[in-house]
Amino acid sequence: MTRYLLLAALAVVALIAPFFVYPILLMTILCFMVFASSFNLLLGYAGLLCFGHAMFFGTGAYIGGWLMKEGGLSIELAFLVTALSMAVLGWLVGLISARRGGIQFAMITLAISQFIYFLLLRAPFTHGEDGLQRIPRSDLFGVVDVSSNLSLYYLVLAISVAAIWFFYRIVHSPFGEVLRAIRDNEGRVESLGFVPERFKIVALTLSAGLAGLAGAMKASVFQIATLHDLSFHVSGTIIFMALLGGLGTLAGPIVGAALIVLLTDHLAQFGEWALIIQGSVFLAVILFFRKGLVGELQAFVKRRTARA
């Protein structure tokens, strides 16, 4: 019951927020919430640290932007095609990397993302260091105008909610159960006759699709796609978001994304200190609060109820 009340309150806040807060900032938060959830699917539920996750986000931004600018696609089609094409990329990356567990998976995905970074640096349609600029906000279904920040906000909100709901369904499906089992004990899952590698590839495919969607949304929000979106810096930030909020919880990375976007917004004026503070908080989380904010909160509530 309280859960529905909470959801209803959240819905009201989300609907009226753009009248109080700059919509671009809100949309940035939403994009990173989806992106962080896609990362959470891999590390939080499948135990796979994708150390170059920005490759799907950044490439998604380019593809989404290009489809709207040069392809003339309506916005929802551009998003859809981007998500699908990034899912294909995720599948390919999975084919190469899923056989390797843990640390090796992290290093391989990092290297592949770097490969894609240099590839896009050279590709003509990305315009190199300048990035893909002046991306139009195409009409929804070819008819509804979403070029204003406010109207785009509601579109991004609706898509983000749908994406997070999709994520929720994945992790609570039998497929999600198997993923968690692989994370906890891969050998046992294998002995039950499953092929963990296949599940990992599917997880990577789904996650990449979501990350690509987040990237395409970001391109429509800022109307620009740059190499920074797929840089290692962004890959690091998304790990930080997920870990700070709490891996393997639905809300954790979403909360983490919101906090970090707001924090970055505030810290921007401090220059180098921003990086140092980010690194210090990150280190503190790793050393002392590995469950993350939401995870620690859940553990606290559990202890309380256990005592009561």
Partner: peptide, 12 residues
């Protein structure tokens, strides 16, 4: 991840 966080601090 801890060494990664250390990089942010050291480079910063």
């Amino acid at each position: 991840l801890a060494t990664f966080a250390a990089v942010l601090i050291i480079e910063g």
